[in-house]
Amino acid sequence: MAIDNSLLSGSTTLLVLKLLEDGEMYGYQMIEELRRRSDRTFELKAGTLYPLLHTLEQQGWVTAREQSGSDTARPRRYYALTEAGRGQLAQKEAEWRTYAAAVTQVLEGGACLA
């Protein structure tokens, strides 16, 4: 099911950081991986991804290195999480879980009063 873009935009940073948790990736790979992991729910546009990645790089949360790919001569830019980025990911993940739990709780009729 396709979802409203505004729902995705609030959590794009979290999703992008999470993608890089297990190792470095290049832009196209990240869009494909996100599509695969979300069962085609998240269609991240390159026009959103690259400015975001570059902003994260300027904030010091990711680093990038440019290199020719192993199976092609195309120059690729690989992004990797920094220590600061890992910290941010943990924090954003915790925030998201609290938020999601609260939304779910409201949708299900509020907290049970014992």
């Binding site: 832009g27 690259y50 690729r76």
Partner: peptide, 9 residues
């Protein structure tokens, strides 16, 4: 960077 992405796509 955008060019590489387009070609990959």
């Amino acid at each position: 960077e955008l060019e590489t992405h387009l070609l990959d796509q």
